[in-house]
Every structure is written in structure tokens, then in C-alpha cells.
Design a protein around this nucleic acid. Structure first.
Length: 881
RNA sequence: GGGCGGUUAGCUCAGCCGGUAGAGCGCCUGCUUUACACGCAGGAUGUCGGCGGUUCGAACCCGUCACCGCCCACCA
């Protein structure tokens, strides 16, 4: 098949992807091979591919394809996450747009609606992953709410409950009034907002005056239950035990002591609202209030409701927090109880999904005893059972786990795993896999109703590394592929997901979920700003694929992924790697038009020609470097290594160096050898490049030869040190340097590009003479040296020095002698500067005595070389007169 | 208040175990050359954030300061 003149990525991508998928290319049968396993961070079913996915999945695909090429039983588990809140929001939003509300439906109807939506558009992101080239095991695609996975989720809940690691508790939670559900600490983001610091006066009941308190939330006084001062604060000693009459409600509350009150802050006295502030909750508990007694003045939508003692005036009922604040402040001011108001920036909690202010709210929820689960998770990283890359994240990991709080896992939503707990009329909970189990626990036929709540999405996704492999059944797949090898994720979900997988994996499998945790950064806009839809600075990966091809996008992601850094994505970079793909395409076209096809051997072919022996050695070096980089998860280094080899070594030099050998008048034996070697090297390039650029490489693999297998399952090249040939390397290295020197001289002296020159060589060793003979055709072609003479030259000439020899290129009449003098002077200056620097170092006794012997020897050697070079250049300059 | 990362060419970034500072893009000059102008050849460009220390030798190790970014944290 003749390779087209132009490379059109779109024309080949879809074709190869479906070919691979249809021929089981992603998961060939390799029952006896060493396993290699990665699980995808399951994208939300609601999602579409954004640039962060492109990065994350490109890195995973590189590792999986590399492992597959190395002959491993490579498994990339794929699936999607039901994403409770996000998905429910999407469907609700659609309903709202159609003039409907979720609450118009029964729970069952709504959930049915979500499933229908999932069937219809849940495939968007998986289709987009295919466009990226992700070689996932689609035949076993999972979903966090599919029956098997759900079974795992319920079992984990029930087992943790049986072990006392899940319990029900009434305490303050982060309540999202926008979504009407509790959320976990992690789902709260603190923002700084401009607010006010109100200084209030609470009248003492005995009429002896006031106590001043300061607050950013005056409206909560409607549910105040005490005023606290620090036990050692002498200003208030006399007041402790007195009571104050709260403004507005007239509630009588006590002045008590608590360590929480900071004498330095405000007046030193603080109002305590146990039902609406996390600190105050603790103070209230210490003061002897049971959770059930704490006054609650807000409903689920954060509107004021009557409290238990009924003391809130009707005028306040139904107000939003914001309106209540205005009303309370106005009432206080009118009563002369507002001392003063200061401007102040306040740390305010917002829901990360809803964007509304979070209220601490007193409810019954299910909690996971995260503290207990955290111990082994900390140990797993500390002991090295899990290697975190880059390592600097371990500190953040420890810090979070060391201070971990109980994890609230119940959500007041309809979409998700319904909590397997049944309550009787008294509120006693029976936790079991199903109602029958709960009933068995209850032991009689009393009425049981299942908990209305569902589980936090992250509770289920934490089970992904083993739940997707068949757990709780002890399947062969589970035994083979757990622990996974690597988990790749953005650092933004280190706590949400990675740490919880480690906790649950250790608890239920008794073994870490993965050996290596690789955390990558965020993809940012070219100016370093965070990409967001609201800023309108997002880059659509599919648009980039349309414009430059998936291969170019993937290569960009790999080349820019250096550990521990965010990526500033500039589209020009993608363009550059599209150019690289085109370069490869054209190299293959050149090969094809010169009778170079695919190779028939895995082993490097035997070669006599120096240029061929050299490129075989360079190939082996590249394989080594690439393997090393991939083993270290240095994606940038891996990408750059292949890039340099393909473009600079193979295209710029090797293909140019072999052109003479492929010509009509060339020796037939040498030509045949060169075709064989070139074909073999090109094959290795395609294999090495395949993890990064799967589409173009598969296309060229088949275009260059008839193959009995696809590239996706070809054999990774072996880094064979025997391929290294020092003599050949030196000869080609010499050739490259000589050509480079002559080209530079010609260009700087404005010698017409087509002009053919004779090289008069001085001081040439036997080796150089032999090389000049064997490389004559190359020099003629690449440096336009039509003949070599060992006679002295006459007239004006350009001169270049390579090793021991000086090459004099007569340019009588053409040359600008001044320009050549300047050029030589520059070369002399460079050589002498380095020579003198080395001489200085060698002249220091301290260096010679204390530096490593290797370093001293190297300095001596370099000094001799530089010194000789400077002398030769000076001699050349002298000859010019 | 803690913790982490960053500061290297005009831009974006590499630089491993301390031994003569690199790449891509951009810029300048030239070029129908057995593939490729999405290309070829050549070229210019650095107080490695500041200061101090360790060392024969520091972009790299240590200390410190400055600025930028991120994460965590209950100061009402």
C-alpha cells in the first residue's frame, strides 16, 4: 500500500480504533503472562472529556500499551461513576428546563428517569475516550451502580457496620441548603468574603449592665444557649454564673467558662450557638447540653424556623439567613444593643457543587470511622508498600490522614446506592444486605422502613480497584490483578479517592490496592490560569484532536508531563507534535519509495557498513533510555528521548547518510544491507512510538509491509548492548562533526549552497584518510566536497579543524578573507577560553589533590584536546596571512 | 497559622550522583537538496530570583530573604 503524500490523522484514527476493538487488540489472551493492571479513574457518567481527562488517560494508555508490547497481560479496567450529586443535578436541571420538578415524581420514577438518561447520554465520555485512543478493556466495562458493583458496596457498608467502623450519630454536619443534603468536609471549600464583625451587648439579667460579645453571624443569637468566657479571664470572673437575657427572644442563658473563648479576641466573651457552629457545638457539649437539646433555628433550606422553646418572634420565621441577619441587626440597633460594626474578611464555607453557603446543621447521619481505617493506610506508604510519585505528596497524605475526621457518608439524595439500613418505629436501625436480613435481626414482624438516604459517591468509588475485578467473589481475575500496578490520578482527588481506596483496599483485601500512586498536576491555560467554563478559557481536547490528531495531543501531554508541576498548555505545542507526526510520515514515505519495508526479524540484522552499525547502536541506546524513563514514570523524558531519536538521529542524519548508498551507482550488497537495517530501525521506531502515537504508527506498520499481526501487539525492542559498536560510532560521529563544521563555514562565509569544493587535508592520520575514503560519497552529498587532496592549497581558503586534521577549502575569488579571519578568531577564542579555564583548574593544587581522579583525568584530557585545537586554529589563521 | 511547589534564553520548560548551561517554540540569515516549507542548513540569545555558607568546584547541597501559585486549618 502506497503511503499518501499527506498525513491526515482523521482518516486513520477511527478506522484503527474500531479495528483494535473488534479484534480484541486491547486485551489479547495471555493467560500465562505477567499481569499489568491499571484501573481508570471512573469519569462521571454525566461527563464529557476535558483536557484533564486527556492528560490522565494518555499517561495511563502509554503505560498500558507499553506493558502490552512487552508481552504482559495488560488490563486497563474501564467504567464510569454514577456521581450521585452531579448526575442528580444534571437530570433535575433538565426537568426544571422542561417546567418539571424532581419532587413531582416519586423516588422510583425519578431514579428511573436518571437511568433512562444514563442509557441515552451516558456513553458520551466513553466514546470520547475512544477518540483519544485509550486501549481499555471495553468488553468488561463497569458502572458503579451495576448489580455486581452495588453488591460490593452494600457488603462493605454492612461489614464495616458490623465491625463498628460505621455508625449513626447526631451531630453537626456540613449541610448544603441548595442541594438539601449533608456533604463531607472535603466537599466544602472555604472562600474569603467581605463580611462584618458585629459587637453586641447582651443585657445581664440582674440589671447590672451588659456583657459584650462579638460575632460575624448575629442572626444565630436566635438560637444562642450561653455566653462563654475563658476560665482565667479575670475581667469576667465576677460575671461567671450570672445570666443574660437575650435580646429579641428574651431567652435566659448563662455565662459560663470554656477554654474556647479567646481573651485576645473581641471582648473575650463569645456567644455560643451549639446548633449552628462547629466550635459552639463542642462548647455546648462540654457545658452539658445533649445534642437533642441544642436549639435548631434553620430548616433544610436554611430558612429560620421556630426553635424548641418557641421564643423566636413570628416576624423572623421564614427569613433566609441573610434577611434574618439584617432584621436581627436592625432590632439590636434600635434597642441600643449594637455597639459597633467592623469590616472584616471572613472565611466562609461553600458547597463545591452547589456554590451556596454551607450551614452547620444538626442531623442524624452515617459516619465512617476514618481514623481507624487511616492507620494502615499511613503505614502502607510509610513502609513503601505504596510508592507515591512524586514523593513530595507523601507529606500532604500523612498530614491529612493524621488529622482525619469521621467521614459522613449519607446523602439526602435519590440517585445512588441506597443505604442498607432499616428502621423500626422507634428509630432502631438494622443494617443488613437486604430487608430479610434486617428483619431477621429485628426478630419479629414489626414495621421496618429502609433508610431514605444514599451513600456518598466516593464511598463506592473507593472500592473500584477490587470491586471491578469481581469482589466479593474470589475470582481468578481478582487474584491475578489485585493489587493493581499503578494508579494515575490528578492530585486534586488524593483525599477524595486515592486515600480512600487505600483505606478500603487494606481493610477488605488485606493488601494495598496499587503498588505505585502517580499524581499529576492540573492542565492550565497558557497564562497559567485555572481552566474553567465560567472563565471561558477551557481548551476542548476533542477540538485539538480534530485540528491536529489524537497522536499529536497525546504526545503533547506526555512531553509536557514532568513530575510535580502543572501543565500550561499552549496550542502551538500540539501543532509542533503534529509536525513531528508528519515528519515520521514522510520518513516512512521516503523509506517506502526506496524499497525499504518492514523487517522480518526481532533481532537486529547483521551489518558491515559503519553507518548501519552506528544506527543499530543508537537504536539500542534509545530503547534503554526509553525503558528507563518509563520505569521511572518520567513521561517527558520518555517522549523527548523518542522525539530526538526519530527526528535528529534517524531523519536528520541516518536517512541523509544512507542516501548515497541507495543511489543507482551504489554497491548492491551495501544497498541491500542498508535497506534491511533501515527497515528494521524504522520498525523499532514504530514500536517505541506506539504507546505515545498509536494511530499513525499502526497505519505505517501496515503500510510498510504485510504483517501477520498488528503493531498494538508487536514485540517491544530489546535494548541489546551488543549492538553498540564503538568504532562505527566514532567514525559516524567524526563524519557528523566534519559535515557540521564545513556547513557552518560555508554558511557563515556565504559560499553559494551549490558550490562544490575540494578539501585539502593537512595532518590527517591514517584513520582519517581511511574515513575520508569510505565517507567520500557522504561528504560529497552533505558537504559538497567533490574531491579530497593531500596537497597544500593555494590562495584564500576556509579552514576547519576536526580532531588532528585541518581541512582547507580553497575559495579563491569567492572568499571574504576578513570574514574568515573573524570566524577563525571566534573559534580560537572559544577553544582558548576553555583551555585556559581547564589550565586554571589543573593549576590548582587543591583540585588535583582533592577532586575525584576521574575528574582530574578528564580535565587533563580535555585540556590537551582544547589546547591542540586552539593551536591548529591559530596555525590556520596564520596561513591566511 | 501550618505544609507543598515554583523562580534557568523573548515564551513554555528540562537539567539525574555537584565537574565547560539544554530542548521546543519564537527570532535572524540562506535554501526547489532522493521524503517532509507541518521542511532543510546555519546563527544569535543566560548575573540559573537576592544574599550568605559548605566544597578543589554549586543551577544542583545547606541557611536566609523576596516574590508567585496551590493545599490544609474552628480564631467567634
Amino acid at each position: 500500500m502506497t503511503i499518501d503524500k499527506t498525513f491526515d490523522p482523521a482518516a486513520i484514527e477511527a478506522r484503527w480504533y474500531s479495528h483494535w476493538e473488534n479484534t480484541n487488540g486491547f486485551r489479547p489472551e495471555r493467560p500465562d503472562a505477567e499481569p499489568f493492571t491499571i484501573v481508570i479513574p471512573p469519569p462521571n457518567v454525566t461527563g464529557s472529556l476535558h483536557i484533564g481527562h486527556a492528560l490522565d488517560n494518555t499517561l495511563q494508555d502509554i503505560l498500558v500499551r507499553h506493558a502490552r508490547l512487552k508481552g504482559k497481560d495488560a488490563l486497563w479496567v474501564v467504567g464510569t461513576d454514577h456521581a450521585g450529586i452531579a448526575t442528580q443535578m444534571v437530570v433535575e436541571r433538565q426537568m426544571n428546563a422542561a417546567g418539571e420538578k424532581r419532587t413531582d415524581l416519586t423516588r422510583e420514577q425519578f431514579v428511573e428517569r436518571v437511568w433512562a438518561w444514563k442509557e441515552e447520554s451516558g456513553g458520551t465520555i466513553t466514546g470520547q475516550l475512544r477518540r483519544l485512543g485509550a486501549s481499555c478493556d471495553w468488553a468488561n466495562e463497569r458502572f458503579t451502580m451495576d448489580p455486581g458493583f452495588s453488591r460490593a458496596v452494600l457488603k462493605v457498608f454492612v461489614d464495616l457496620h458490623a465491625k463498628g467502623l460505621i455508625y449513626r450519630d447526631k451531630r453537626l454536619v456540613n449541610w448544603d441548603p441548595g442541594l438539601g443534603t449533608a456533604i463531607s468536609d472535603l466537599e466544602v471549600e472555604t472562600r474569603e468574603v467581605q463580611g462584618k464583625f458585629y459587637h453586641l451587648r447582651y443585657p445581664l439579667e440582674d440589671g447590672s449592665g451588659f456583657i459584650a460579645v462579638a460575632t460575624t453571624r448575629p442572626e444565630t443569637l436566635l438560637a444562642d444557649m450561653m455566653v462563654a468566657v475563658h476560665p482565667t479571664d479575670e475581667r469576667y470572673t465576677a460575671m461567671v454564673g450570672k445570666r443574660v437575657t437575650l435580646p429579641i427572644t428574651g431567652r435566659s442563658i448563662a455565662i459560663g467558662t470554656d477554654e474556647h473563648a479567646d481573651p485576645e479576641l473581641g471582648s473575650g466573651a463569645v456567644k455560643i450557638t451549639p446548633g449552628h457552629d462547629f466550635n459552639d457545638f463542642e462548647v455546648g457539649r462540654r457545658a452539658g447540653f445533649a445534642a437533642g437539646e441544642m436549639l435548631n433555628m434553620l430548616d433544610a433550606k436554611a430558612r429560620v424556623v421556630q426553635v424548641a422553646d418557641g421564643l423566636i418572634p413570628d416576624a423572623y420565621l421564614g427569613l433566609s439567613v441573610k434577611d434574618a441577619r439584617v432584621a436581627v441587626v436592625a432590632a439590636l440597633e434600635e434597642a441600643g444593643l449594637l455597639d459597633r460594626v467592623e469590616d472584616r474578611t471572613i472565611q466562609t464555607p461553600y458547597g463545591d457543587r452547589s456554590g451556596v453557603v454551607i450551614e452547620p446543621w444538626l442531623t442524624d447521619q452515617w459516619y465512617v470511622d476514618a481514623k481507624t481505617l487511616a492507620g494502615p493506610a499511613i503505614e502502607a506508604v510509610r513502609s513503601g508498600a505504596i510508592k507515591v510519585v512524586p514523593e513530595s505528596w507523601t507529606k500532604t497524605y500523612y498530614n491529612w490522614l493524621d488529622n482525619i475526621q469521621p467521614w459522613c457518608v449519607s446523602r439526602q439524595l435519590w440517585w445512588g446506592h441506597r443505604i442498607p439500613a432499616w428502621f423500626d418505629a422507634e428509630g432502631t436501625a438494622f443494617v443488613a444486605l437486604d430487608e430479610a436480613g434486617a428483619r431477621a435481626q429485628a426478630g419479629d414482624d414489626r414495621v421496618l422502613t429502609q433508610d431514605e438516604d444514599v451513600l456518598d459517591t466516593w464511598f463506592s468509588s473507593a472500592l473500584w480497584p477490587f470491586g471491578t475485578l469481581g469482589w466479593p467473589d474470589e475470582t481468578a481475575k481478582l487474584a491475578k490483578h489485585y493489587p493493581n500496578d499503578v494508579l494515575i490520578s490528578g492530585f486534586d482527588i488524593l483525599f477524595f479517592w486515592d486515600a480512600r481506596m487505600i483505606m478500603q483496599g487494606l481493610e477488605f483485601m488485606g493488601e494495598v490496592p496499587f503498588r505505585t500512586l502517580y499524581l499529576h498536576g492540573l492542565v492550565r491555560a497558557p497564562d497559567g490560569a485555572k481552566m474553567s467554563k465560567s472563565k471561558g478559557n477551557t481548551v476542548d481536547p476533542l477540538g485539538l484532536i480534530d485540528r491536529y490528531g489524537a497522536d499529536a495531543l497525546r504526545f503533547t501531554m506526555a512531553a509536557m508531563e514532568s513530575q510535580g508541576r502543572d501543565i500550561k498548555l499552549d496550542e502551538r505545542r500540539v501543532e509542533g507534535y503534529r509536525n513531528f507526526a508528519t515528519k515520521l510520515w514522510n520518513a516512512a514515505r521516503f523509506a517506502q519509495s526506496n524499497g525499504i519495508g518492514g523487517s522480518t526479524t526481532l533481532e537486529p540484522p547483521r551489518a558491515e557498513q559503519a553507518v548501519n552499525r552506528w544506527i543499530l547502536g543508537e537504536t539500542a541506546k534509545t530503547v534503554q533510555a526509553l525503558d528507563l524513563a518509563l520505569a521511572d514514570l518520567r513521561f517527558d523524558e520518555a517522549a523527548n528521548t523518542v522525539y530526538q531519536f526519530v527526528w535528529a538521529t534517524f531523519c536528520d542524519w541516518y536517512l541523509e547518510l544512507i542516501k548515497p548508498a541507495l543511489g543507482a551507482e551504489a554497491d548492491a550488497g551495501a544497498a541491500a544491507e542498508t535497506r534491511t537495517v533501515a527497515g528494521w530501525v524504522l520498525d523499532q521506531i514504530l514500536v517505541m512510538l506506539h504507546p505515545f502515537m498509536p494511530f499513525i504508527t499502526e497505519e505505517l506498520w501496515h503500510a510498510l509491509a504485510t504483517r501477520d499481526h498488528d503493531l498494538i501487539v508487536a514485540a517491544w525492542p530489546m535494548a541489546d548492548a551488543r549492538a553498540m559498536d564503538p568504532a562505527a560510532s566514532q567514525e559516524i560521529d567524526w563524519t557528523i562533526r566534519l559535515v557540521g563544521e564545513i556547513r557552518a563555514a560555508r554558511a557563515e562565509l556565504n559560499v553559494p549552497p551549490g558550490a562544490k569544493l575540494v578539501a585539502h587535508v593537512r595532518d590527517a592520520s591514517e584513520v582519517t584518510r581511511a574515513r575520508l575514503a569510505s565517507q567520500a560519497a557522504v561528504l560529497a552529498r552533505l558537504a559538497r566536497i567533490e574531491a579530497v587532496s593531500f596537497e597544500p592549497a593555494v590562495g584564500g581558503a576556509a579552514q576547519v579543524v576536526v580532531d588532528e586534521a585541518t581541512f582547507v577549502l580553497p575559495l579563491d575569488g569567492v572568499i571574504d578573507l576578513e570574514a574568515e579571519r573573524a570566524r577563525l578568531a571566534k573559534g580560537i577564542a572559544v577553544a582558548e577560553k576553555e583551555r585556559d579555564a581547564l589550565a586554571g583548574r589543573l593549576g590548582s593544587a587543591a583540585f588535583v589533590e582533592r577532586a575525584k581522579p576521574d575528574a582530574v583525568a578528564k580535565a587533563r584530557e580535555d585540556h590537551a584536546l582544547r589546547s591542540a585545537e586552539a593551536d591548529r586554529l591559530r596555525a590556520a589563521l596564520a596561513r591566511l596571512g
